[in-house]
Computed example of a mutant assay.
Amino acid sequence: MLRVYSIACLLLTTLLCSTAARAQVQVLTSIKPLQLIAAAVQDGVGKPEVLLPPGASPHHYALRPSDIRRVSDAQLMYWVGPELENFLPRVIAQRKQPSVAVQTLPGLKLQHFGEEHDGDEHEGHGHDADEHDHDHQPGSLDVHLWLNPVNAQVIAARMAADLSAADPSNAARYQANLAAFSERLKALDARLKTQVVAVEGKPYFVFHEAYNYFEHAYGLEHAGVFSVLGEVQPGAKHVDAMRERLQEAGPSCVFSEPPFVPRLAKTLTAGLPVNLAVLDPMGAELEANATGYETLMDNLANELTQCLGNLPSAE
């Protein structure tokens, strides 16, 4: 009789553990930066998943049948919005459970391409129209909104509210995680502001206009954007014009993004006092844990300040 009772208890315990595991809220984010924010909120309760694999472009991703199933099955779905993940709206519309396009959240500091950088929190940097990245038309929303800690805080607060509603038994933990994340963001913001002061005004160029939010938050501004379409080499006239910009700038940095350095980079910088480096605004290889978002931002600051800090000081 005791043996039967023990077996029954074991089965009950297994069932309860299995039920608890299933009770974890299934959170799916479109891109890694949103997963990093969600991981801070879900820390100790569950682990959010991400739709796009490392290195995949949110501008051009093609959904597989398995991706569509994941979007359909997730209890909570977070994406930036149709301006970034233009492959998602039709699939999102078919979902029966909550989905949040975070670009619509109140309280965000949003920027638009081509607007003058005059200190207004809703405006970005001004550059010549022909320098804009091919995906980023003047006047369109800059969707790289996660690169400002203020926006990360707004997104995390919405996630904590959604998770608390979906999983009331862990609401206190979600709110505690949100409070801890908020405190770490304050420390991050202060740290980055101090770190980048030494390189303010030093010239750098990018292959993708993805950093306006980060630059606006920390007093930086890129000198130009070298527009390239994938690995297609631009014409000689365009390359000469870009090299002229680099020559005018003098010692500078040119930043590309993973997973590859554009072939144009070496052609463009050959024989010039230019340092090539890499910035990853997506945090593609980062682990989704409680401090992943801070690591993403710290990495950007470290790469920028390391490259720019190695440039000779202006006379």
Rank of each mutant, 00 (worst) to 15 (best):
G224A: 05
Y174H: 13
N275R: 12
P234E: 07
G283T: 07
L36M: 12
F113H: 04
V197W: 00
L300N: 03
A74V: 00
H134G: 11
Y213Q: 09
E200M: 05
D130S: 14
N299H: 13
I155C: 08
F226G: 10
P33G: 06
L268N: 01
S256G: 05
N289R: 15
I68V: 15
L10E: 14
A277C: 09
L34Q: 14
Q75M: 08
H208K: 03
A38S: 15
R263S: 11
G201R: 00
L304K: 00
R22D: 15
L279H: 07
V239R: 09
H208Q: 09
A156W: 02
L304H: 07
H208F: 05
A187N: 02
P58I: 12
A21V: 13
D118V: 12
G224M: 08
G107L: 01
P138K: 10
P259I: 11
L63E: 08
P53E: 15
R64Q: 10
N289D: 15
F87D: 03
A38H: 08
V80A: 04
P48N: 13
A301C: 05
V239T: 15
V199R: 00
V143P: 05
P168G: 09
L311H: 10
L311M: 06
T269I: 03
Y174Q: 15
P234W: 04
A39M: 05
T29L: 07
F87C: 02
H216C: 08
A166D: 13
P262H: 05
L36N: 04
G201D: 04
L296H: 09
S6G: 00
A301W: 04
L185S: 05
H144N: 09
E49H: 12
G219D: 11
H144I: 00
A160Y: 02
Q175F: 02
H59I: 15
F207M: 01
G201S: 07
A172R: 13
N177K: 02
N302Y: 11
P168S: 10
L264W: 00
F226M: 11
A249P: 05
